[in-house]
Design a protein around this nucleic acid. Structure first.
Lengths: 227, 227, 227, 227
DNA sequence: ACTGTCGGGACGCCCCGTTCAT
DNA sequence: ATGAACGGGGCGTCCCGACAGT
């Protein structure tokens, strides 16, 4: 049992390494060797945990799927929840290599045979739901097309993230996302609501701290999900 | 000697094929073989025109550098010029494989040793110039940060483009860019100006038609449009 | 872990095969494929043991460097030691493929970036030392230029070896070297000494047998001799 | 006809270039491209004059075959003629690229399908003839084996030449050959004859000058052959 | 007769994903 | 979990031919 402990730890190490390397070089540009060298393992060790490069990529992807839709704490303003989910995501992207790899893999079209669109669709769907709730709460302009907006949010977020990665190594990601939301939200939220939204760059970090109260001391986002 | 006709044609064929394949698979995922097979050539032919995969990529990139800053026709409203340049670019992206490959390569971090950021920086710089002119013409809100905005435009455009590529093979690209601009411009343009801007999805195509009238043949965009 | 047995064996097989092929075709004329096919291996196996063709060549070279200076048994006449070292070398050249390859690579100018002159210089230096000792023992003519002579020995030995390889596949190498020494030694050794020297073609083989008696296993020449 | 003039000139240029490159890199290590680039030609030009790389090599070889047996001016001592032929050959080797290439090709075993042994055999045969004449003139020790000696001369000359090429770029070739002959001749020539032989390093150059009297001012050895 | 442009295709080196025995 | 081996395939080189001008 203590034996399995290490196995799980190793597997996690590999996943994180893979995330980082995938994020950096994309699927085709990544060699398995890069991945296991980075954590001081050998080929054998790697193939004990993962059957193939494809499987590895899928696991990196899977580790994030259904999780970018961060279930933030409920707020009076539904749009604040939407903002929170984006800012928390941006925040997590700054330090979670698996998330970074996952995003890259999703953008990396035709990487193997994986369905890279799943994460996008899930993300869009989640935004769509949030917007629908916001509309029910009267937080949106009446003429806004919800699907268009949900997809726009996902697309522009992705692009801003790529640019931040390219220009600053993601160090200014949260600021850029904050700028993005500040520019975008007034276009579909009613003015009174916009004024009340907190879209500051450190919003993600604050929300995360808030969520950590009930003793989920593990920093990994996954565990936080329990809520 | 005059026989160079065919050589030039072949070279162009390869560049276009390369653009398409790069766009689809990224740098690392592209094999040179894919590129020349696609146009029925052989390795010998390919290597007669290009010394290496890297050089090929650089040529694809170079074919676009300094050209995404589409010289649009002057307008009364500077922001209309900004919109036009984006819409024309989006339009061109729907049919020009070299442009498509160039964008993908730019987003494809660490593709070889190429400076992939050059196109981004040029693009940002161009948007910045346009915004400065717009500010001088009083078309912008006073508190807008121009650099933030310029970078936001580039980032979100890129993201929207990737999403469109992934979801629809770029068929809805112009509509998505139109949506993007519609959402973004009110956040920095004064209301009176926004109302006068034409951001319709077919704006790019119409501007292009307009440009074709006189002798604009210095911009090779026109020739490509033949399709 | 103990399994490395086979690996070492394989590596040695490759080295020997490489020696033979290099000897036959030179560096540029040798294909790695020739080398591993010859011993029934595959590309993968080869590249597990050697990183590149260059490294392979260097290992072949290195396997011989510091070994052509055959530590012969001490004799009263220093010149007999010189003769012995040459004859033993000639003898070893008839059956040791690595030695053969090594020589060929040394003569093969500009083979990659390897310093092919090292073996030559070492060889010359060793002959020079032997001649100096001989001079101290009064075995040489007074007017002999030692460096000239040392270099002449190396050069003419090499040439005779090449010719023997070309004309008889090295079958008559020992006889030719014997002839060479018989012609050369009187030109710098004093007559009384020359008369006492044993330069018979089978001298190399006899010296080797003599060396095998006690525990000379530090010289791996002996093991190879098993054949 | 004047047209052909240039053709012949071009062909000669290629041959010389080829000699130099073959000398430097051997047969397998030489690319045709190296050869014609070196003289500013293109592939087309090359293939007009030579059908293939093999043919080129054969022509380089042929340009020298039957010519290393330099028919020197007759001397009272047949051995002086032998010496002269060697020294002239050494001299020519210092500046004639075709000769250099030819030698390298001969030593480059298994270069294509060319019979590389022909030059060796011819050279040996010529030395053998010279020795036989010398024997008839009573210039040799009675017990000397002529064939052994002839082959030894060829082999050791070749080796000395290779070493000189490797160590000094052939700058000291004539001195080394002079040393070689000085050491070798006393082993088969009778003392009285040896004392009269001129084996100085500049012997080759002097003999050549002597041969040039009858107005064969072309420095190329080929033309001198007319005598 | 001679030279240059363009293209074809074989092959060499090496990387990489993967399997197997231990 | 490791050392060893396998084999597919990518990149790039190279030899050469097909023509077209001159």
């Amino acid at each position: 049992v203590a034996r399995q402990e290490r196995g799980i730890r190793t597997r996690q190490l590999i996943l994180e390494s893979a995330g980082a390397v995938f994020a950096e070089h994309g699927y085709a540009g990544t060699t398995i060797c890069d991945v296991y060298n980075r954590v001081g393992l050998t080929k054998g060790a790697f193939y004990f945990h993962f059957a193939s490069k494809d499987e590895l990529a899928e696991e990196v992807l899977a580790a994030q799927v259904g999780r970018n839709q961060y279930p933030v704490v409920p707020r009076e303003l539904k749009l604040q929840e939407l903002v929170d989910s984006g800012m928390v995501f941006a925040h997590a992207l700054t330090y979670d290599p698996i998330l970074q790899g996952s995003i890259r893999l999703s953008l990396d079209l035709h990487a193997g045979e994986i369905d890279r669109l799943r994460p996008f669709r899930a993300w869009i769907a989640q935004n769509l739901r949030a917007l629908e709730e916001a509309r029910e709460h009267g937080e949106l302009h009446p003429r806004v097309d919800l699907l268009d907006t949900a997809e726009l949010l996902v697309g522009s977020f992705s692009g801003v993230q790529v640019l931040s990665h390219a220009l600053s190594g993601r160090r200014d990601l949260e600021r850029r996302v904050s700028v993005l939301l500040s520019h975008l939200l007034p276009s579909f939220a009613v003015p009174g609501v916009v004024a009340k939204l907190d879209m500051a760059p450190d919003r993600g970090s604050r929300v995360l701290a808030e969520m950590r109260q009930p003793a989920w001391e593990d920093s990994n986002i996954l565990e936080m999900r329990a809520a």
